[in-house]
């Protein structure tokens, strides 16, 4: 495993922003179900203690769990660089940032799908989500291609992302979602 410079860079950028993030939660390393539920529990507790409204806490948990779920299920099993997950807060926004290694095939699929979804309107995303929930075919593990749509529908924002090549069949997928802070 090599040092995660992607995570370091993003954390530094977050600290350098015009309106710096006053609170950050960062998770680095392998994911499993227990770590995912523990992470969500810590974030919930943090937001609750900061006085965030129930709706914002719930939205953050639902988006966060979808991102972590995708990272665990679709990330490279023998990744060169560890995955990371970060929730940063300031007075204006709550930002969820994530990074993990994906295969070349997944990198191409994600780039194509996210470019298509990011070009759609909020209403278009809602319609697509409903259609996929109603008619989407379940995979062997019960997923139906709803993860990205769910994140977009709940945040009502684009998923910002970049894909960086690490080696021939491995890319680092960095993404973030920004939620308006209505604390």
């Amino acid at each position: 495993m090599i040092e995660n410079n992607f995570a370091k860079r993003h954390i530094q950028n977050a600290l350098d922003e015009v309106e710096p993030y006053s609170d950050m939660f960062i998770l680095l390393g392998e994911l499993n179900r227990t770590i995912i539920s523990g992470t969500i529990r810590v974030i919930e507790s943090k937001l609750h203690n900061l006085g965030y409204p129930k709706r914002m806490i719930s939205r953050t948990k639902l988006i966060g769990v979808e991102i972590l779920d995708n990272m665990q299920k679709h990330g490279c099993k023998e990744a060169s660089i560890s995955s990371y997950f970060e929730v940063s807060l300031n007075n204006s926004v709550l930002k969820i940032t994530a990074g993990n290694c994906v295969s070349k095939t997944d990198s191409e699929f994600l780039t194509c799908t996210l470019n298509k979804y990011n070009a759609m309107s909020v209403d278009g995303i809602k319609k697509k989500y409903l259609e996929q929930l109603k008619h989407g075919v379940l995979s062997e593990t019960g997923n139906a291609g709803l993860g990205l749509l769910s994140i977009l529908k709940r945040s009502e924002k684009k998923i910002n992302f970049e894909m960086e090549k690490i080696k021939e069949d491995e890319f680092y997928f960095n993404s973030n979602v920004i939620l308006d802070n209505f604390n």
Binding site: I40, K61, V65, E66, L138, A144
Partner: peptide
Amino acid sequence: LEYFNTGFSKNLLA
């Protein structure tokens, strides 16, 4: 429900 993923949503709807 406290929170759930989309795999759960799809199966709950089924």
